[in-house]
C-alpha cells in the first residue's frame, strides 16, 4: 500500500505580518511548525504502516525551508519526502495549490491520501477536498477515527458537531483528518540521526510542467485585497431602572435578531 500525507509548514504565531502589496502572509523570520491537523494525518499513516504495512510518502508545497519539517517526518519513520518548491508556485490560493499538489500526487499513484482538515494560517479547509476533486477520487473530510483498514478500503468515523458517521470508502481515496484523530509520536533517535542521509525529492515546475496560468499567484482566482483584524466596536447604552425595565430592554434589543 502506498500512502501520501499532505503536510504544511505553518507560522507558529498569531502576530503575522502581511505583505501590503499582495495581501498574503510574510513567512520569513517567523518560527514554523507542522500544521496541527496535519500531525494527526501523519500519525494515522504511520499507524497503518505499522499495522498493515505501507510506504508512507510525505508531500509538502512551500519554500525551501519546509525541508526542515520533512526531516522531522523522516525522524518519525516516513519512507520518502517530496518538497514541491518553485518561485512559480508562490502566492498560490487553494485553487492553484490543489492543482499543483494533484499534479505531484499523480506521479506517485497512492492508494490512500491523508491531509489535515485545514491549516491554521489560512483556515480554508479547501485544499484537501479540491485535491480529491482534481484526482477524481472519493473523499471523506473531518475524520476523527480510523475504524478498520483492509488492502482495498478503509472504514472511518466522520465527525460533525453533534454526531458521527461511520463510512467505508474504497481506495484510492482522500481523507482529511481532525487534530483529535491521533497524537503524533515523537521522533526516534535512530531515524532522526539518519534523517539527513535521506534525500528530499524536490519537485519544481520543470518536473510538473503546469501552465503558468494555473499556478502561483497568477493562477489564483482568489485575490486577497486586504487582510486585517476587524476592530471590535461596541456601543454602550445604559438603562436605568429596576429588573422589570432591564428585562424589557434586553428583550426588545434582542427581538429583531430572533425569528
Amino acid at each position: 500500500m502506498k500512502i501520501v500525507v499532505l503536510m504544511k509548514q505553518v507560522p507558529n504565531t498569531t502576530e503575522m505580518l502581511i505583505d501590503k502589496e499582495t495581501g498574503t502572509l510574510i513567512r520569513t523570520g517567523v518560527d514554523s511548525i507542522m500544521n496541527p491537523d496535519d500531525t494527526s494525518a501523519l500519525e494515522a499513516a504511520l499507524k497503518i504502516k505499522q499495522s498493515n504495512g505501507a510506504e508512507v510518502i510525505v508531500i509538502t508545497m512551500g519554500p525551501p525551508q519546509a525541508a526542515n519539517m520533512l526531516r522531522e517526518c523522516y525522524g518519525r519513520g516516513v519512507d520518502h519526502a517530496i518538497l514541491i518548491s518553485d518561485p512559480a508556485f508562490a502566492g498560490a490560493d487553494t485553487w492553484a495549490t490543489s492543482n499543483t499538489l494533484a499534479a505531484a500526487i499523480k506521479r506517485v499513484q497512492p492508494d490512500l491520501i491523508f491531509a489535515g482538515r485545514q491549516a491554521i494560517d489560512g483556515d480554508t479547509a479547501q485544499v484537501g477536498p479540491q485535491v480529491a476533486e482534481r484526482l477524481n477520487i472519493p473523499q471523506i473530510t473531518y475524520v476523527s477515527k480510523i475504524v478498520e483498514v483492509t488492502s482495498d478500503s478503509i472504514v472511518v468515523k466522520k465527525h460533525y458537531e453533534d454526531f458521527d458517521e461511520t463510512l467505508k470508502v474504497s481506495f484510492p481515496c482522500l481523507l482529511t483528518t481532525l487534530e483529535q484523530l491521533d497524537h503524533l509520536r515523537f521522533m526516534n533517535v535512530t531515524s532522526a540521526w539518519q534523517a539527513f542521509d535521506k534525500p528530499i525529492e524536490t519537485v519544481n515546475n520543470q518536473v510538473l510542467m503546469l501552465d503558468a496560468k494555473d499556478i502561483g499567484l497568477k493562477g489564483s482566482p482568489t485575490q486577497v485585497r486586504k487582510t486585517f483584524t476587524r476592530p471590535v466596536s461596541s456601543e454602550v447604552k445604559l438603562i436605568h431602572g429596576g429588573s422589570d425595565e432591564a428585562v424589557k430592554a434586553i428583550l426588545s434589543t434582542l427581538a429583531p435578531y430572533i425569528q
Binding site: 526531516r71 522531522e72 525522524g75 515523537f186 521522533m187 526516534n188 533517535v189 532522526a192 540521526w193 534523517a195 539527513f196
Partner: peptide, 17 residues
C-alpha cells in the same frame, strides 16, 4: 551539526511532554 539540532528538538519535545 544539523543532526544534533534535530535530536535536540526531539529531546526538547520529549522533555516538555
Amino acid at each position: 551539526n544539523e543532526k544534533h539540532l534535530l535530536l535536540k528538538k526531539l529531546y526538547q519535545q520529549f522533555t516538555a511532554e
